[in-house]
């Protein structure tokens, strides 16, 4: 009947709630006000311009523009290549993250540092570099075409290559920290319960990694859908074949077809919003599954 022993020194939950009410820290109104002002000026105002201008079109007009055959072909290429690139990045990104966290191998630190190259390298630079590399006379292109007869540059495959490049860091950088935090005890427990190595990976490790893996996939996909700079050099930009949706917008702009460009941009913005919501959900799921905050 000892009552006091049950009273553990836990940090009471209400301390968290306490934040909302009153704080001695100053500057809330100032910082929030400035944040909102900046967001409105830089983000909300321009985005609303797209939708408001797009609404000048009647629905049939809008529909005709955004479903024109050339535009439809660009959706197929953009979303198809983005999905494929994100999937390839998920597979190799997982391998790279696994190798970086779990193994020692020569050059590991350099690899770890260079993974972020696509974040830091301007897309136009990446675009011309990839083109030079995969062109008919390039380091890789000459073998691909000479030996296997595969053309990469100036074909939809080129689009895929560029989108793989810009998506590399996403999966690695979302999976890596989760993998680092993973307790070896889980796998020790699995092994002690008789699981084989692949079983303990499949049933114990992979479920923990799944949310992060999907988040990385979604981030890579979202980035790829909107990508412009690295793609246009390598794609060849042939209408109906290797023309991506952002390029359609540019083309329409160059023809002073502002309404047409705005309509397609509105479609892309909606896709961006949806992807963002999806990513937020996935990140919340990752946080829940691993106990990490993002």
């Amino acid at each position: 009947m000892s009552l006091s022993s049950a009273l553990e020194p836990v940090k009471p939950a209400y301390r968290k709630i306490a934040k909302r009410n009153y704080s001695v820290l100053p500057g809330f109104s100032l910082s929030l006000g400035y944040t909102l002002f900046y967001l409105c000026l830089i983000v909300i105002l321009p985005i609303s311009a797209v939708f408001i201008r797009a609404s000048e079109l009647s629905w049939p007009e809008f529909w005709e523009i955004v479903t024109a055959p050339r535009v439809m072909a660009s959706y197929k290429l953009t979303f198809g290549a983005s999905l494929a690139a994100a999937a390839i990045n998920a597979v190799f990104g997982l391998m790279l993250a696994w190798a970086l966290v779990r193994y020692t191998f020569p050059g590991k630190r350099v690899v770890d540092a260079l993974i972020d190259l696509p974040f830091a390298l301007p897309t136009a630079v990446a675009g011309i570099a990839l083109t030079a590399l995969y062109a008919q006379n390039g380091w890789i292109g000459q073998y691909l075409e000479g030996v296997f007869g595969i053309k990469v540059a100036y074909t939809p495959l080129g689009v895929l290559v560029a989108l793989i490049f810009i998506g590399v860091p996403f999966v690695v950088r979302t999976v890596q920290p989760v993998l680092e935090d993973l307790e070896t005890e889980l796998e020790e427990a699995a092994a002690s319960l008789g699981a084989r190595r692949w079983q303990s990976f499949y049933y114990v490790v992979l479920p923990v990694l799944t949310p992060a893996l999907l988040t990385g996939f979604a981030l890579a996909f979202a980035r790829a859908v909107g990508e412009y700079g690295s793609v246009i050099f390598i794609a060849g930009n042939m209408p109906m074949v290797s023309e991506i949706t952002p390029l359609i917008i540019i083309t329409k702009l160059e023809q002073f077809d502002y309404l047409g460009a705005t309509a397609v941009a509105a479609v892309m913005l909606v896709v961006s919003f949806l992807l963002l919501l999806l990513i937020n959900g996935l990140q919340a799921w990752t946080a829940k599954r691993t106990g990490r905050s993002r």
């Binding site: 979202a222 952002p246 502002y258 705005t262 913005l269 963002l276 919501l277």
Partner: peptide, 27 residues
């Protein structure tokens, strides 16, 4: 959370669309 989502927005909006937005406002 909505605020955070808006801060994340530029990560997923196509740069081309960004350019167009400013043309629509200031062009």
């Amino acid at each position: 959370h909505i605020l955070l989502t808006f801060i994340d927005l530029p990560f997923s909006v196509s740069p081309v669309v960004v350019g167009l937005m400013y043309v629509l406002v200031f062009g």
